[in-house]
């Protein structure tokens, strides 16, 4: 099964480029394949991918280390939708996976934000409880949501909308980490820190 062609058929060039490292490695350890199938519930496609790559020099190949290397990526794949291939740095595939994560963040963020705003508008029309107004305090936003006040939902919808690009940044950090691109993971983390500083310095 070729996972990449299934993922995005249009990028023909990229597929030919990465098919080689992705293919069955002659030196693949049989036990690695075996343990991969044992966690098949988490990520069914994982069995096709080399996990403990024979190409990379494994310095400490204790069973504990190997287990961590194999299980953690599965969890991340489940959460972020990232295809975890630590050996391939800066390949077409890694780049595309990164884009895929960012793409999901955007759609999820926009959808949640829209739903919250629609609830807010609906409550406003139905209940007329309060005049929707700016709610500058984050705790107050949640208190108003709990009290089913339209202003709470509208403010929370706006907050989710504002948070969506921040989620893209967080998603990119994870993507860089799983590409083992520490430099860009660090750069992106710095961007996140600056955004978080605005949360503190931006207080009224």
């Amino acid at each position: 099964m070729d996972e990449t062609t299934q993922h995005e058929p249009s990028s023909g060039e990229a597929v030919t480029r990465i098919r080689h490292p992705d293919g069955p490695e002659p030196g693949a350890k049989p036990d690695a394949d075996h343990s991969a199938t044992s966690v098949v519930v988490l990520a069914p496609k994982e069995a096709d991918r080399p996990i403990a790559a024979p190409a990379t020099p494994v310095t400490e190949s204790t069973p504990a280390r190997r287990a961590r290397v194999q299980v953690v990526p599965h969890l991340i794949e489940l959460v972020t939708g990232l295809v975890v291939t630590p050996e391939e740095k800066k390949t077409a595939r890694a780049q595309r996976d990164l884009n895929e994560v960012v793409h999901r963040m955007l759609i999820i963020g926009l959808a949640i934000s829209t739903v919250l705003m629609l609830i807010g508008i609906g409550l406003d029309i139905a209940l007329q409880r309060d005049i929707p107004t700016a709610v500058p305090d984050f705790r107050d936003v949640f208190a108003r949501v709990a009290a089913l006040r339209p202003s709470g939902f509208l403010a929370l919808g706006l907050l989710v909308l504002i948070a969506t690009p921040v989620l893209r940044v967080i998603g990119s950090i994870f993507a860089f980490i799983y590409e083992r691109d520490w430099r860009y993971a660090g750069i992106t983390f710095l961007v996140l820190v600056i955004i978080l500083v605005s949360l503190v310095l931006g207080r009224a």
């Binding site: 504002i162 955004i195 310095l201």
Partner: peptide, 11 residues
């Protein structure tokens, strides 16, 4: 988003 966080907290 960075500046929106500032504007939001100032109402």
């Amino acid at each position: 988003a960075t500046s929106a966080i500032v504007y939001f907290q100032h109402g």
